[in-house]
Simulated assay, not measured.
Amino acid sequence: MARIAILDDYQNVSLSLANWDLLAGCTVQAFADHLTDLADLEARLSDFDVVVAMRERTPFTAALIERLPKLRLLVTTGSRNSAIDLAAASLRGVLVCGTGGLGYPTAELTWALIMAHMRRIPAEDRAIRCGRWQTTLGLGLKGKTIGIIGLGRKGTEVAGYARAFGMERLAWSPNLTDERAAAAGAMRVPLHDLLRDSDIVTIHLVLGPTTIGLIGSEELATMKPGALIVNTSRGPIISEEALVRALEAGQIGGAALDVFDDEPLSPDHPLCHAPNTVLTPHLGYVTEEGYRLFYRDAVEDIAAFLRGTPVRVLNPPPCAQAS
């Protein structure tokens, strides 16, 4: 039967959060470490028929897929993965399937990052462990303005939290309407006005050609001097180079980031040393509830594939790709 690899299981939890025994006769191996070198990935995965990838941690490029002749099924947790070359998978006869996912954990983490920055929680935590007491002045949220870039499911949840905290809510998305914004309890405004008027700017857009570098030097310069920018979406939406310059110059009040251009983030990266930052290691989707859903659906995907009735297929079959 099939040999199955589970990648990037940083917390060593994948085997305990789903019933892999349902895949009778299969061999399942989980890997907690993260590989980036193409040759290393080829050496590790060349004997596996099925690979379960955790979100976009390991890119499956055409070059990697071509080096895995035994690979028949690639399962990504979640329903979208921009790090998988779906066309290349189809050309090589590799089926790609997804899983369900939870949206609310990312919205909750967004609010945790906002609170951590506004009430200076990381700084005060460090201070109290060093014997110091009340070293900063925090900021409240009531009456302040939050600007939500991307008013989809997650952005709408964040708007709901903001309403509960008594905040004014502005929103911008490329195709947002006044009616859709009002239904979410926000006011649609141009992006420039959102950046200019918001005390907190939070990003909830999908990464794509039109959103890469959406927030650069000009956009950061438009923000209030004390404003906070939050990103729990995808790192490249903000120019990291421009953001570091703005932070070091005191041009904005701070940044709270869960996502980065290259992950895991190197401890030598300038963001790790920039002032007024709260950084988390892409934790938006990392909850026990979310992981149980990911791995349960991964088992279902593999079982269905082995039966010849695949589910949650993300790429076209080879014949459709060729046509």
Rank of each mutant, 00 (worst) to 15 (best):
D21H: 13
W20N: 11
S14M: 03
R57Y: 13
T36F: 14
A43D: 13
L71F: 03
N12Y: 07
L23I: 05
P69C: 05
D40M: 12
R80H: 13
R57W: 13
L41F: 09
T77F: 05
P69V: 02
L64H: 07
T77G: 10
T77E: 07
I65Y: 08
P69Y: 04
T77H: 06
T61L: 05
L38F: 11
Y10M: 15
V51N: 00
T76I: 09
L64K: 02
V75G: 02
L17A: 15
L35W: 10
K70L: 03
T76Q: 08
V50G: 01
H34R: 14
L22S: 12
V75E: 01
V52L: 05
F31D: 11
D8N: 08
N19H: 12
D33R: 14
D21I: 14
A24F: 09
D8L: 07
R57D: 11
D8P: 09
A53Y: 08
L35R: 13
N81R: 04
C26H: 08
C26Y: 07
S14I: 02
T61A: 06
F31G: 12
T58Y: 02
T76M: 07
T61Y: 03
A24G: 12
D33K: 13
N19F: 06
R72Q: 06
L35P: 07
M54N: 13
S82E: 06
S46P: 11
D37I: 08
A63N: 13
L15A: 08
L73K: 00
T76G: 06
R57H: 14
V51C: 00
D9G: 04
D37M: 10
L71M: 02
A32H: 15
D47V: 09
L7G: 04
T76K: 06
L64G: 03
K70A: 03
I6S: 04
D33V: 14
A24K: 14
F31L: 11
N19Y: 05
I65P: 06
W20A: 10
L23N: 05
Y10I: 14
I65H: 06
L7A: 01
F48P: 00
V52I: 09
I65T: 06
A53G: 12
V51Y: 00
E42H: 05
Q11V: 12
G78D: 05
R67D: 08
H34V: 15
C26N: 10
L73I: 00
P69H: 04
S14K: 00
E56F: 02
D49S: 07
Q11N: 05
L38M: 11
L71C: 04
L17Q: 15
T76P: 09
V51A: 00
T27A: 15
D49E: 08
T61R: 05
R67Y: 07
A63H: 12
K70R: 04
K70Q: 04
I6N: 00
D40F: 14
V13Y: 12
A53S: 15
D8C: 09
R80I: 10
T27E: 15
H34M: 14
R44N: 01
P59A: 04
V28E: 04
D8E: 10
F31I: 07
S16F: 09
V50S: 01
A62Y: 02
I65C: 10
L15E: 07
A53P: 10
